[in-house]
């Protein structure tokens, strides 16, 4: 009867293990990765999954086994053991070694994703501004306005000061396969987080700061259709790569959704951009965000 408790624990823990094992096969797993460094992130995830999975199995099996083996028996007396110095030393050193391994294998990937000095020279510069509750995205035209390979001074100045011929989109980020995209991320109001799960990329936008981030997409999911004046939707819904806000920003946080459109090549992207520029200049230009920091006493929101 006493031993049944170990069986009970064993069943629950087995169910947990089974759920993990089954999930990848029923589509409950990482979404498709389409960024150049996403593979490294996923590889790290699998390394950690393997290490933690083995640790989980070993410790839980030992627990359940001990619970079974040493269940109360009036004929027996417990061992009088206060510890084992050597054993403590072994598991401390072994655990420390594994943790140090995990710690140091990841440093390089982190540096590649986030260190400003490691970011490659951009082939496309974009400025993204979060606000409640949408993403404003600006592209410079012509695209080679920044005489490369120059310093980043010009793109950074452009990120701070919008120009009249910038192409503006709302919630749509366009790029092409292989383009090294540099994003300058800002926010007008509260903290947002520009999250692109398929690129394994996320970065908080901080009020008052401009934060650089970069990625390179490795697969396309759209093509420009000049005749129809729109980008083709991918046939497969799982290739609708989405942008999601990952930092609570108020009631509309959940609907701060964007889309990532990756064109097959630069020409296709430029065709889209040119079309957008024309369409845009035939209308009144959108409201240019006024220089940040101008205090205007008004209370007209809503």
């Amino acid at each position: 009867m006493q031993k049944l408790w170990s069986v009970f624990f064993g069943l629950v823990l087995t169910a947990i293990f089974a759920l993990c094992a089954v999930s990848p096969w029923v589509g409950w797993w990482l979404p498709q990765n389409v960024s150049s460094y996403g593979g490294d992130v996923d590889a790290l995830f699998y390394i950690i999954l393997a290490i933690t999975g083995v640790t989980f199995v070993i410790t839980e099996v030992l627990l359940v086994w001990f619970m079974y083996q040493y269940a109360y028996n009036p004929q027996r007396k417990a061992r009088y053991v206060e510890g084992n110095h050597r054993l403590e030393l072994v598991w401390t050193v072994a655990t420390a070694a594994v943790l140090l391994y995990v710690a140091f294998t990841q440093v390089n990937v982190w540096e590649n994703i986030k260190y400003q000095g490691r970011m490659p020279e951009p082939s496309l510069t974009v400025q993204v501004t979060g606000r409640q509750w949408e993403w404003h995205i600006r592209y410079p035209t012509p695209l080679d306005v920044f005489d490369q390979p120059a310093s980043l001074e010009k793109p950074m100045a452009w990120a701070e000061a919008p120009e009249i011929d910038d192409v503006r989109t709302s919630n749509e980020l366009h790029t092409w396969v292989g383009a090294k995209v540099r994003i300058y991320l800002k926010t007008e109001d509260v903290i947002h987080s520009f999250g692109l799960p398929n690129l394994r990329l996320m970065q908080d936008a901080l009020p008052g700061k401009t934060i650089p981030m970069w990625f390179k997409a490795t697969a396309a999911n759209t093509q420009w259709n000049e005749a129809a004046g729109r980008c083709e939707e991918p046939a497969d819904a799982s290739r609708r790569w989405e942008i999601a806000c990952k930092e609570l920003c108020g009631g509309g946080h959940y609907r701060m959704r964007g889309r990532l459109y990756v064109h097959p090549n630069e020409d296709d992207f430029r065709a889209w951009l040119t079309y957008r520029l024309k369409a845009q200049s035939s209308h009144e230009p959108e409201k240019t965000p006024s220089a940040a920091g101008t205090p205007v006493a008004s209370n007209t929101k809503e």
């Binding site: 007008e188 109001d189 009020p207 008052g208 809503e302």
Partner: peptide, 13 residues
């Protein structure tokens, strides 16, 4: 509150 203040639509802090 950052030096530049914030914008909420037409409202500037």
């Amino acid at each position: 509150l950052p030096p530049g203040g914030l914008e909420f639509g037409n409202l500037h802090t």
